[in-house]
Computed example of a mutant assay.
Amino acid sequence: MSTTITPPPSETKLIDPDSLGFLIGDIARLMRGNFEREIEKVGVPVTTSEARVLVHMARCGAARQNVLAEYLGLAPMSVTGFLDNLERAGLVVRAPDPADRRAKIVTLTEAAQVLLDRIAIAGQQARARALAGLTDDQVAAFKSAALAIRTNLETARTASRTEAGS
């Protein structure tokens, strides 16, 4: 016999399962899963996590490992493991940062560019599935709103770091 736990009515009003935070989290999770399936279909010879690292590197260019970890929202140690595998596969190179020899700058190799083309195809297919049935105007409005939200959050994060450092 299973029982269902029902929160008190006052608590259910506080949590909206379709609030912006839940929607963004759900969309991100579902997009990631959709992308993973597409990556498998196009036969990319790296894990989906490693593919995400390559895509973010293509987005931000040569970067320190810790900066890349922040972009990905991952722990630096996790990114180090992915980079170890990608370096062994000849897809990235790491070199000392001239400004700080303790830090490493990660750069994509030419071999990674070929792989990124295949990853881009998977990304296009994943986006097409996600946007099915939406008009161009709806997609443009969503993208505009999402960009504004990202800017707001990045501004708030920068301000918070500035306040913490002063």
Rank of each mutant, 00 (worst) to 15 (best):
V42Q: 02
G43R: 04
G43P: 02
G43D: 03
G43C: 03
G43Q: 04
V44Y: 03
P45S: 00
P45A: 02
P45G: 02
P45E: 01
S49A: 13
S49P: 04
S49Y: 12
E50V: 12
E50A: 14
A51E: 04
A51F: 03
A51T: 08
R52K: 14
V53I: 08
V53L: 05
L54G: 10
L54F: 06
V55H: 05
H56M: 15
M57Q: 15
M57W: 07
R59L: 10
R59M: 14
C60E: 15
C60I: 15
G61N: 00
G61Q: 08
G61C: 03
A62W: 11
A62D: 15
A62P: 14
A62Q: 15
A63K: 15
A63C: 14
A63M: 14
R64I: 11
Q65A: 14
Q65F: 05
V67F: 13
V67E: 14
V67K: 14
L68N: 06
A69L: 02
Y71L: 11
Y71F: 12
L72W: 04
L72A: 02
L72G: 05
G73K: 08
A75Q: 11
P76Y: 03
P76Q: 05
S78E: 11
T80M: 10
T80L: 12
F82H: 12
L83H: 03
D84T: 13
D84N: 13
L86D: 00
L86S: 00
L86Y: 01
R88K: 12
R88P: 08
L91M: 00
L91P: 01
V92R: 09
V92M: 09
V92A: 10
V92H: 10
V93L: 11
V93M: 12
P96L: 07
P96S: 11
P96T: 10
D97G: 06
D97N: 14
A99E: 15
D100P: 04
R102F: 05
A103F: 08
K104W: 01
V106D: 03
V106N: 03
T107V: 08
L108N: 03
T109E: 09
A112T: 03
Q113A: 08
Q113Y: 09
V114G: 09
V114H: 10
L115A: 00
L116K: 01
L116D: 02
L116W: 03
D117A: 15
D117H: 13
D117K: 14
R118V: 06
